[in-house]
Computed example of a mutant assay.
Amino acid sequence: DDNQSGDSSDDNQSGDSSDDNQSGDSSDDNQTDNSKSSDEKDKSGYSLNACSDDIQSALDADEDELICDLHKKIRELMEEKAEEFEQKFVEEFDATYFAPALPFPCKKSANASGIPDWVTEARMNSQRIKTVLHSILYDRNKSKRSFDKQGTDLCSGAIWGVKAGNSRIFRTDAITRAPNSAFTILVDKSGSMGFSDMRTANVAAYSIAQALEFLKGTECEVLYYPFGSYDEPHNHVAKAFNERMASVTSTSFNVHANGGTPTAEALLGAVTNLIQRKEERKIIFLITDGDTAGPNVKAALQECDVLGITVIGIGIKTGELSGFENRPTMLIDQCADLAPAMFNFLRDYYQA
Rank of each mutant, 00 (worst) to 15 (best):
A58N: 06
N273F: 00
K317R: 15
E243H: 10
D188V: 00
K282N: 05
L137W: 04
D53Y: 11
G15F: 12
T120M: 12
Q87H: 07
F285D: 00
R199T: 02
A205F: 02
E325K: 13
V255F: 03
A209Y: 03
Q127G: 05
K107Y: 11
I159H: 11
I283L: 13
S143N: 10
T184K: 01
N344Y: 09
D19G: 07
D148T: 14
F285A: 02
V306Q: 14
F241A: 07
G260V: 00
T272N: 12
Q56T: 05
E65Y: 09
S247C: 08
I55E: 10
T152K: 09
L212E: 00
S8C: 09
Y225D: 04
D305G: 01
A341H: 07
I136K: 05
A264D: 04
D94W: 04
D139W: 08
I159Q: 15
S44W: 08
T272Q: 13
I185F: 03
N180Q: 14
I208M: 09
G259T: 03
L137N: 02
M245G: 10
K36R: 14
R281D: 11
V203P: 01
M245F: 15
S207M: 02
D148N: 15
G323S: 05
S38Q: 13
F93V: 00
V311C: 08
S146P: 04
I67H: 09
S156T: 11
W160P: 04
I283H: 02
Y206G: 01
E76V: 07
M124P: 00
A246N: 14
G313K: 05
D64H: 09
D94K: 11
M330F: 06
N242L: 06
E325Q: 13
I316W: 01
L137Y: 06
P100W: 10
D29E: 10
E325V: 06
N21G: 10
A299T: 04
A246T: 10
A99N: 11
N34G: 11
V162L: 13
S167R: 11
D10A: 15
I283D: 00
Q31L: 10
L70Y: 11
R177L: 12
L70I: 14
M124S: 13
E265C: 08
I185Y: 02
E76D: 12
I67R: 10
F343G: 01
A336I: 14
F195G: 08
T172W: 05
E76L: 10
R75F: 07
V119N: 06
G319I: 04
F85W: 12
A211S: 14
F170R: 05
T32Y: 13
G157Q: 12
S9K: 15
P100E: 07
L154T: 03
T263V: 08
S5M: 14
P116A: 06
G161K: 15
G194W: 05
K298F: 07
D39L: 13
C220P: 03
T329R: 09
S143W: 06
T288S: 11
S250I: 04
V119F: 12
V271N: 01
N125L: 06
S247E: 15
F104P: 01
D29P: 00
N180V: 03
G15T: 12
P100Q: 07
D19Q: 09
N326V: 03
F253K: 05
I314Y: 03
D153A: 09
L48Q: 11
C51H: 10
G294Q: 02
